[in-house]
Design a protein around this nucleic acid. Structure first.
Lengths: 153, 153
DNA sequence: TCACATTTAATTGTTCGCAATTGAATGTGC
DNA sequence: GCACATTCAATTGCGAACAATTAAATGTGA
């Protein structure tokens, strides 16, 4: 009985890797977002930063980094590009000169209205009910948090 | 009755975005993989390429790209680094001179044995049963494929 | 107070990821 | 057979992502 694959190799097969499922799904999302975000003049990570700021404004870089799991090496140049696009302002905190506070400009605030069209386009592209997506999201977040807990050890 | 958030803003809230769940889970996986892959001298995308090659060897760049959803702009420099690490060889196909065939070196083949320890470490880190992970993986792959179908339109 | 550790952003260097372009090889339609 | 389109990898340029380091501001203990 010839076999194409050895059973011992199963754990190393690409199609058996949940990490690749997640990795490739993230890229697929990125590609779906791209044309939508192009109209806003944003990249996907920039869009995430704007989501954070639309919820709360005038926050230090560190707070944004904690919410998005990104560090200053990623955020500093990204925020400078958002500043160059006149969407945010970067100012040193007067209370703690180490912190740089990120505030939305009027244009940054205004972009929120244009962004409202994005989530519904994504929902349509995922071709899935809201409840299914919410359930999946919660599972993935739970997995992510368990992984992050291991890293923190 | 004061509300912190408007209901109209719910679709734009970071915690409601499945894409962010996927995005941040991908990064969490990356961080868990890093110390494991450091021992193999591989980055995560390089590990994915090696997974493909351990299944089948002597394939054109295009085939690897189709399996991983990556293009030559990503793969060409990555494969050159794997070649510099003596894990693969790159040769022009004699039948079709446009194609570059990627073959494993003996060291590339040998690395597979060292890599067998990786999946079980990941399984432990995800703190989850195999059947749960398989179910999640299948859901995520189905979502990814629906997203990719939209892009292909 | 003063030495010392901690916190915070910024910087540097390496590796992805992709769009757009180039150039060579191949396939095709007439 | 020959113009033409197509295929494939390589290249270029830009924007992440992160490790490691730097530098300044702040906090802490003796």
């Amino acid at each position: 009985m010839p076999r194409k694959h050895s059973a011992a190799d199963a754990p190393l097969r690409l199609d058996n890797q949940i990490c690749f499922a997640v990795y490739s799904a993230a890229h697929a999302f990125n590609r779906v977002y791209k044309p939508l975000l192009d109209r806003l003049g944003l990249t996907y990570p920039q869009y995430l930063v704007m989501l954070v700021l639309w919820e709360r404004d005038d926050v230090p870089v560190k707070d944004i980094g904690e919410k998005l799991f990104l560090d200053s090496g990623t955020l500093t140049p990204l925020l400078k590009r958002l500043e160059a696009a006149h969407l945010v302002r970067r100012t040193r905190s007067s209370e703690d000169e180490r912190q740089v506070l990120i505030a939305l400009t009027p244009q940054g605030h205004a972009l929120k209205e244009k962004a409202r069209a994005v989530p519904q386009s994504i929902l349509a592209a995922s071709d899935c009910s809201v409840s299914e997506l919410v359930a999946m999201k919660d599972e993935i977040v739970a997995l992510r948090d368990r992984l992050n807990a291991v890293i923190g050890e």
